[in-house]
């Protein structure tokens, strides 16, 4: 399980997170929602070592992850899909996928994982030898998630997978995330602008506001909370 305690993060003079504490149980899908600039991306980037924490702690199971390097993260079973369509356009779809499994140094396993990903996202299967920059936005997002699945993670950090996608595609992606979580027993931190969509598939919800936690609880409860509805769901 993921335990974040009193996490403080500064970007130079700007404090992006003011002591955030979050606890997520194994197998849970947690939606982190909040307005632009709330600190959602900062939270994920700090967890994966891309940003430095000023104070606080974060542990995944027994492992203290705050002070580890981003490249050791996959080795602890954590995979981070960063904001924007996080694929490498110069590489082929197939190479993008293989990249995720490189650290395991096992070609056979990698091929097997690739098959699993293709089963999950058949559209990628048809485009394996194309360069990733020929993909549509939705396909890129599938590729990014697919790549992180190649690493066989137990904890998945997803930063706005719905960014810039058409509503129908968003629904598809969200459904895949939900299915994956249940089928593989993953723990997922899903950062989203699309609060309604995220809370629909999530088990628990965390509302960030200006770097602090504004509300937290079961996803269903948050969806029904009038204050949250007014502030973040827009109705």
């Amino acid at each position: 399980m993921l335990r974040i305690k009193n996490l403080v993060v500064d970007h130079g003079a700007i404090r992006a997170l003011h002591g955030v504490s979050i606890s997520i149980e194994k197998g849970q899908l947690a939606a982190v929602i909040g307005a632009n600039g709330a600190g959602k991306t900062t939270l994920l980037r700090t967890l994966s070592g891309l940003n430095k924490a000023t104070d606080g702690s974060a542990a995944w199971g027994e492992i203290n992850i705050l002070h580890s390097k981003p490249e050791s993260l996959v080795r602890y079973g954590i995979s981070h899909v960063s904001e924007g369509k996080s694929v490498i356009p110069e590489l082929t779809v197939s190479e993008n996928l293989e990249l995720g499994a490189l650290w395991r140094r096992n070609r056979k396993e990698s091929e097997k994982s690739k098959k699993d990903v293709v089963d999950l996202f058949p559209r990628l299967g048809e485009r394996l030898s194309q360069r990733a920059d020929s993909l549509s936005g939705g396909e890129r997002q599938m590729l990014a998630i697919g790549r992180s699945m190649m690493a066989k993670p137990q904890l998945l950090l997803l930063d706005e997978p719905s960014l810039g996608l058409a509503p129908l595609v968003v629904e598809q992606i969200f459904q895949s995330i939900r299915d994956l979580t249940t089928a593989l027993g993953l723990t997922v931190v899903l950062v989203e602008q699309n609060a309604m969509g995220a809370l629909k598939i999530a088990d628990i919800g965390i509302v960030l506001n200006l770097g602090s936690i504004a509300a937290t609880g079961s996803a269903a409860a948050l969806r029904d909370d009038p204050a949250v509805r007014a502030a973040y769901l827009g109705f």
Binding site: E71, I88, L91, L102, A151
Partner: peptide, 24 residues
């Protein structure tokens, strides 16, 4: 080779490579 893939990935997108476990 895998090494070649790491070399290319690291040069095009160091951050993504890092998050994929490559020692950039």
């Amino acid at each position: 080779t895998n090494l070649g893939l790491s070399l290319r990935a690291a040069s095009f997108a160091p951050e993504i490579s890092r998050l994929s476990g490559i020692r950039v």
